[in-house]
């Protein structure tokens, strides 16, 4: 999945939020704030889900302003994002919620927007240098991804057995960081001692390649019990491969996946557990942050605490994954099983 492989965060150790005694700011509903939700590009499910979350917050806060959901095409993502951000500032919109796909190339446009009074809040993928951005609404902490994957492997294999990793590409920054985080988690706790990682292969985030790599893993390792795929393309391909070859009783699949794509494999037992953060919640939280900033209820400053509707209280902290920049860490992961996958797949 593009949004997993494209955002280029570095792995970092989990840092606790500084506990500063301060009353949490709350949103005053009914104020007019013109918002733009700007994804990397249009046409993939997670961004539409984020839009749903933003719409929910928009309705909940009774914002008489406009919530515009617009984005470029995948081929024109960089120039398109710069153009939309610049135009939004010309139009005098109050907030742009940006899932940045342009790296630091968006910095001049973001700085110009801030000077014109348009706040830029990033979500899903930040501005690497942190310049031009008010703050970043991060989905989950990378270190936590490692623990969640280790726990799923532990649970599926009952604490003992061989597993392999099916990743995206060998140089995919996110996946490599997550695999490293999982290995760190496995090494850190004695309870994972029975889990043996026997192989790591790459399906290039293409369905057919991933499908074949998954089958090759089963051939190469007769005692394999689990394929862990930290990519939404790989996990679907691996689950389909195990299902098609009738291998689901022997080899399970787990990793990071989208509920709507995984629901049948989770219900038939091929992929009993997988994880992802909720993009609906991410859109909802990003909207709240933008609204609170634009209405002056909060400042983009370290230690600022605020309430984000149904999601509870959050604190702005320094982003440990970047040299410069502030973040709000959403977390936690949702682990999907046969119990909750159907509701999330809607």
């Amino acid at each position: 999945m593009r949004h997993l492989t494209l955002s280029a965060l570095a792995v970092a150790a989990f840092c606790g939020a500084p506990a500063i005694a301060q009353d949490a700011a709350t949103a005053g509903p009914g104020q007019a704030v013109d918002m733009v939700l700007l994804p990397k590009f249009l046409g993939i499910l997670p961004f539409d889900q984020a839009h749903r979350g933003a719409q929910e917050a928009h309705a909940e806060l009774g914002n008489p302003g406009e919530l515009l959901y617009t984005g470029p095409t995948p081929e024109n993502s960089v120039a398109g994002q710069i153009e939309i951000l610049t135009t939004a500032a010309s139009q005098g919109r109050d907030v742009v919620l940006l899932s940045n796909n342009a790296g630091d190339q968006i910095v001049p446009a973001a700085q110009a927007a801030q000077e014109a009074g348009t706040r830029v809040v990033t979500w899903d993928s930040p501005i690497p240098s942190g310049e031009g951005e008010s703050l970043f609404v991060a989905q989950v902490d990378f270190a936590e991804i490692g623990v969640v994957m280790a726990d799923m492997a532990h649970s599926i294999m009952d604490g003992e057995g061989q597993f392999a990793i099916l990743s995206a590409t060998p140089d995919a920054a996110n996946q490599n960081a997550w695999i490293a985080a999982m290995q760190a988690a496995l090494a850190a706790d004695e309870k994972y001692a029975g889990l043996e990682l026997v192989d790591t292969v790459y399906g290039d985030d293409q369905s057919e390649v991933s499908y074949n790599r998954a089958l090759a893993l089963v051939d190469a390792h007769p005692d394999l019990e689990l394929i862990m795929a930290p990519t939404s393309v790989g996990i679907v391909a691996a689950a389909k491969a195990m299902q098609d070859e009738g291998l689901c009783d022997r080899v399970k699949v787990s990793g990071l996946g989208v509920p709507a794509e995984m629901v049948s494999y989770t219900l038939n037992g091929c992929a009993p557990q997988f994880a992802l953060w909720s993009f609906v919640d991410l859109g909802y939280l990003a909207y709240y942050v933008g609204y609170l900033l634009a209405t002056g209820a909060i400042e983009a400053a370290e230690g600022q605490t605020f309430e984000a509707g149904r999601m509870g209280t959050y604190t702005i902290e320094r982003d440990p994954t970047r040299d410069n920049g502030l973040r709000v860490l959403m977390g936690p992961f949702t682990v999907y099983t046969a119990e909750n996958v159907e509701a999330a797949a809607q």
Binding site: V78, D104, Q105, I106, V107, P108
Partner: peptide, 11 residues
């Protein structure tokens, strides 16, 4: 844009 990447001006 103050920064460059391999996909500059693509298309």
């Amino acid at each position: 844009v103050g920064a460059v990447r391999g996909d500059v001006a693509l298309g």
